[in-house]
Simulated assay, not measured.
Amino acid sequence: MNYKNFPMVPRVIFGRDSFSQLNDIIAPKRLNIKAPFIYLIDDVFKNNTWLISRIHLSYDDKIIYISANEEPKTSQVDALVEDIILKTKERPSGIIGIGGGTLLDLAKAVSIMLTNQGETKDYQGWDLVKNPAIYHVGVPTISGTGAEVSRTTVLTGPEKKLGINSDYTPFDQVILDPELTKSTPKNQWFYTGMDCYIHCIESLNGTYLNAFSQSYGEKAFDLCKEVFLENNSSEKDLQDKLMMASWHGGMSIAYSQVGVAHAMSYGLSYLLGTKHGIGNCIVFNHLEEFYPEGVKLFKEMVSKHNIEIPQGICTNLSDNEFDVLIKISLSLEPLWENALGKNWKTIATPKKLKELYKKM
């Protein structure tokens, strides 16, 4: 049997105000004064002096502000890479992604495409990247996606929504500063936190489960329950715990896989542009037959925090559009096999998926 030999994030710093150490951390990685650091930052922080003032640009370093209103696209990565190549004298010393899952995925993808030829869409899949990425740093400002720890960068391409899954994808350095999550809007906090919770449920109930993924998944699951169901933690403790839940949830799926909710939400994202966290919630709300206990707990969390899960987003879709949803979803074969086993195609039929999508 061939066991997966997965890379880990080699360096991680955790703690409130650890973001202030960013400059000291990256300084030794500067190749020369003509090789800049490129900061990809969520544009919600454009006028946030509390955060931006702690970034010290030197030489030709640049900040590129990017909207996270849409899911990251392969074409967006290509445009960023071209822009960076045209505007820098030498290959950058590194890429620093600051934001949620969208910005972290873009940072990982850009760092890969600066050293690999062709278009980003050519690398959507498993182990297609040939050359190591340039040095890249992840600084999450919201907790839940696990993008800070995973070996994938999820992108919507012209034909599919699929990650660049490779040993060169994980960050070289991650800075986990819970204080950076303090201004997250409540709905976004919940949807992204549920991405982590759903990672746990899909990993812990999957056929790929093993002691490695189980140990991380169980810890993340317990932390999610503390954050979203209990009332005995301070705001700071909640921020710390959710950041750790995100990390552990990402580690859990690194050595197993996600399942039905992610497979089906990829379809929603590709066709309708539904944001990943919301998409997972919309789908998971209807998956009692696959994850009965997980969905029951999820609905308790939704009720406790007075969250409105969008309804009826598939109501007016045509048969052709349903076919696209189903095709994208069923193309994610490892997810379905983890969820349902080797004979998953007898359960996850196009007819079955159409019935589920029509409920959403």
Results as ranks from 00 to 15, higher is better:
Tyr3Cys: 14
Lys4Asn: 15
Met8Phe: 15
Val12Leu: 13
Ser18Met: 07
Phe19Arg: 00
Gln21Leu: 13
Gln21His: 06
Ala27Asn: 09
Leu31Gln: 10
Asn32Trp: 07
Leu40Gly: 03
Asn48Gly: 08
Thr49Asn: 10
Pro72Asp: 05
Val77Asn: 00
Asp78Ser: 04
Leu80Phe: 06
Val81Lys: 02
Glu82Tyr: 06
Glu82Leu: 10
Leu86Cys: 11
Glu90Ala: 09
Gly94Asn: 00
Gly97Ile: 02
Leu104Met: 11
Lys121Tyr: 12
Trp126Leu: 15
Trp126Lys: 13
Ala133Met: 02
Val137Tyr: 00
Gly138Leu: 04
Pro140Arg: 01
Ser143Ala: 14
Gly146Ala: 09
Ser150Gly: 13
Lys161Cys: 08
Lys161Ser: 05
Leu162His: 11
Ser166Gln: 04
Gln173Tyr: 13
Ile175Leu: 10
Pro178Phe: 01
Trp189Pro: 03
Phe190Gln: 04
Gly193Gln: 03
Gly193Asp: 03
Met194Gln: 12
Tyr197Gln: 05
Tyr197Glu: 04
Ile201Tyr: 03
Gly206Cys: 09
Tyr216Gly: 04
Gly217Glu: 03
Gly217Lys: 05
Ala220Gln: 01
Asn232Phe: 06
Glu235Gly: 00
Ala254Met: 15
Ala254Leu: 15
Gln257Asn: 14
Gln257Ile: 11
Val260Leu: 12
Tyr266Pro: 01
Tyr266Ile: 07
Leu271Glu: 05
Leu272Ile: 10
His276Ala: 05
Ile278Thr: 15
Phe284Thr: 07
His286Ala: 13
Glu289Pro: 06
Lys299His: 14
Lys299Met: 15
Lys299Cys: 09
Asn306Gly: 09
Glu308Thr: 15
Gln311Phe: 14
Gly312Ser: 11
Leu317Trp: 06
Asp319Ile: 12
Val324Phe: 11
Val324Cys: 09
Glu333Gln: 12
Leu335Met: 13
Leu335Phe: 10
Ala339Ser: 14
Gly341Thr: 09
Asn343Lys: 10
Trp344Ile: 02
Trp344Cys: 00
Ile347Cys: 00
Ala348Asn: 01
Lys352Ile: 10
